[in-house]
Design a binder for these strands. Structure first.
Lengths: 238, 238
DNA sequence: CGATAGTTTGATATCCTTCAAAACCTGTGG
DNA sequence: CCACAGGTTTTGAAGGATATCAAACTATCG
């Protein structure tokens, strides 16, 4: 399976070969963007739905004082803006954390998919609910955990999400995010992120260098973070 | 208009009198719960959809160490658990902040509504997206603003949301939330919440006593909070 | 009127920020 | 192959926002 969206949705529903082909057909209009670019800006009303095929992006808001809060990481298989069917304008922006390959899906094509492919529609709704649950968990993370547990939690989550779409190699995965960006994600300064990372490294829990993350002791990291993956709803069984 | 859900959805779509009647019909099985009760517990799979008709509730998670994070306030017109159509189990709990009147809507009735009432279905999807946008804004709040701005922001938001459903009296509204609960909401201790509230009161910005909140200077509060209501998507105009 | 939950106060500790500079990469052009 | 530029990571010292702990005070309600 090549299409990362199909890969992701398959962890929730069984997609027919026909559904998979359909998803592939949606991804004909693709384009590569450079790292640091902006896919969608707050206030805009995009004309197409963007699907990340390769690379990382993030949802973020800029505040009047120049600070930035990153509110979600988008990885291959993630849709950027299904909101456009309903809402008048984006209430946040989407930026690229790495070079990325992005498919632009027309509103009409997307609409047709939702109407004609109930399995896909259902899985997309599931995906929306998981996004929301993830936001809630991030809120818990920011509100209740110190920087040490907070970073550990983020890394546990991203490892699982990357694994879900088949992009881990053992305990390693690509994490194309600077310490500055990690800070903007966790409500910390990059200085403090740096010091906490050093501690995590010194304790032999992980390695992170040149955008490559390896978790050496996932069990311990989960323990530190109080990580419970239930909010990702990866479990299909009833 | 009595039904608070109809009231809320009307700020997004024009509901026909028939739609409104339909919503009223959904609210036949109602019950009053005492403050402090738990509507739904994490891990459960509710059999019905709960709709808050009167009173306040909150989404929250309890952590192993006993701390609690409140992730959303639910006010009249809010649905507690549309998730049940898709997800296997609740990933958080819902508790009552005040005495509350709650309608229990059967899954089947809800399903029928979604299928037969496109205007309502569309409005409910809008409502879900607004909930998600609100979570993102809360994340910004926790990550980037200090306790002073954070509380100001929360109060600006709740005033607008209460206004939307017609439950404000001028600049006043019911806020049946203890300082402890405010702390669990904003990732602060109740002690610190207390001190910040005192400052806000001393500056003549608000009064809060016995669950009654009055905002004396909304413009100034918005300024302090950096409050931009765009994320609530209250504006219907294109 | 006493019990209980909620609010307020003070003193001290800690996590994290701020500021500023140095060290380290990585890619580029000479 | 070296030198240089720009972004990123690392380090140190000092300050500030918020937590912690413990006790007193205040409402509310049966």
């Amino acid at each position: 399976m090549i299409n990362p969206l199909a890969r992701k949705l398959s962890s929730f529903v069984d997609l027919s070969p026909d559904d998979c082909r359909h998803l592939d057909d949606l991804c004909t209009d693709t384009r590569t963007w450079g790292a640091g670019g902006t896919l969608i800006r707050e206030g805009e009303r995009p004309e197409v739905v963007f699907l990340l095929l390769d690379g990382w992006a993030c949802r973020y808001k800029l505040l009047p004082d120049g600070s930035r809060q990153i509110m979600a990481y988008l990885i291959p298989g993630d849709l950027c803006d299904i909101h456009i069917f309903i809402l008048k304008a984006m209430d946040h922006s989407i930026g690229l954390l790495s070079e990325a390959n992005v498919a632009a899906i027309s509103k009409a094509a997307m609409q047709r998919t939702l109407e004609e492919r109930p399995a896909i529609a259902r899985a997309l709704f599931w995906s929306t609910l998981v996004d929301e649950a993830t936001l809630r968990e991030w809120l818990v993370n920011m509100g209740q955990r110190d920087a040490y547990a907070r970073l550990a939690h983020l890394f546990c989550e991203m490892w699982l999400r990357m694994k879900q779409i088949g992009l881990t190699h053992g305990n390693s995965f690509t994490l194309p995010v600077t310490q500055e960006e990690l800070g903007d994600t966790m409500g910390l300064t990059s200085v403090h992120v740096n010091r906490v990372l050093q501690r995590l490294r010194a304790e032999g829990l992980l390695s992170l260098a040149r955008g490559q993350m390896t978790l050496h002791d996932i069990d311990r990291l989960r323990e530190i973070a109080g990580f419970d993956p239930n909010y990702l709803h990866l479990d299909r069984r009833d």
